[in-house]
Write a protein that binds this DNA or RNA. Structure first.
Lengths: 199, 199
DNA sequence: TATTAGAATGAACACTCGTTCATAAACTAA
DNA sequence: TTAGTTTATGAACGAGTGTTCATTCTAATA
């Protein structure tokens, strides 16, 4: 078994440090020590600290909810909309609960306002994915008379805001809630939401 | 008119830098230059950089929603619950939209996961204020049969999550939405919410 | 086995960091 | 005015920052 390339380990450890101390707070030397090499060796793989950061951003930008979660199997369940929402939400949580995603959202929340961040990332951009999918879903449901008539943009945000708070606070936060608790909270939200919008 | 004390100006400028670059990214020298003094003079007023940060935290910890927003005049409007929620939300937004609060929430979002932050602050703690007030409000409404029976904890979060997202993204974010737009978004949320819970 | 490209090293660079300290200036109270 | 206190200064500190570079090691290719 070939072991992971140094470049990947650097990215891995960099994400770990960035997620704990922020971009400015983490140092090349700390990252290098975690990888098990000297700091100068880092520059055989990346041109600068910023390039490491941007490489991480790029890595996560390429993972979209639609790619990772929405598939035919799930879409087949659209005939039972409430169940569809529950399965969709559960998969969302599983996806967000992966170690990488947990760290990434922390970096995002920390760096969204800084110079290095604001030019390249924006929290809206990363939310857009979930939002646009919600708009699609609820737009379709609305058209088919499954749910009441609403502004789909508002609907999408009403559904997504709670989940986003759940993500940043409960999933990626420091208080380690068991995953079942998080499932429960999400399900209660879907219940509340569905009860509000169903035709 | 006596001019502001140096100590207050230091806090003011420190908040500004922290909100733009984070705690680790902002330096004593930058802050000192903004104040118009040398960095060594800072230490006549604060023992360390960390003490400045903690002083800022303390300052904002003492401002609670209940103190700043909830007063008798507002509570008198509880007879018209929907209107009460709208006025309450509008005041919340006005409060969150003050320059100081806009900067503070940024610092909070940035530092919530860092070492210096996590030992002293937590995003939950600062949300608790709004949450507990919501629980109180909705608990009372539920008891009086004004709204349907719900788990008040869930209700509180359903109401607060959207507003929190509005705050971090639209009010304190970099895209400068006109305040009227924000009012509109909030009112649409209250409409949706009220429509879902009213008896 | 000899050659070569990629990766790691350790020392060094110029800089910035937070903090300290003796000293000087500015303000207050007697 | 004088004495005393607070505040500001500028230089210095040790440590840490990101980055460079000549050199050595390693592993695959010829």
């Amino acid at each position: 078994m070939k072991r992971k390339s140094t470049k990947k380990i650097i990215l891995e450890k960099a994400l770990e440090h960035f997620s704990k101390q922020g971009y400015a707070g983490a140092s090349i030397r700390q990252i290098a020590r975690s990888v098990g090499i000297r700091e100068s060796a880092i520059y055989n793989h990346f041109e600068s600290k910023e390039e490491i950061f941007l490489a991480l951003l790029y890595q996560f930008k390429s993972q979209t909810i639609s790619k990772e979660i929405l598939n035919d199997e799930l879409l087949d369940q659209l005939s039972n909309p409430e169940n569809f929402l529950k399965v969709f939400t559960r998969r969302l949580i599983d996806f967000w609960n992966t170690p990488q995603e947990r760290k990434f959202i922390r970096v995002l929340l920390m760096e969204q306002f800084t110079k290095i961040g604001s030019s390249e990332i924006s929290i809206s951009e990363y939310l857009t994915d979930l939002r646009s999918i919600c708009k699609l879903i609820f737009g379709e449901m609305s058209k088919n008379g499954i749910i009441k008539k609403f502004d789909t943009v508002v609907l999408a945000d009403e559904f997504a805001a709670f989940l986003f708070l759940l993500r940043s606070e409960k999933i990626s936060g420091d208080e380690k809630l068991p995953i079942t608790k998080i499932y429960d909270l999400a399900e209660m939200h879907v219940d509340f939401f569905w009860n509000s919008v169903k035709a």
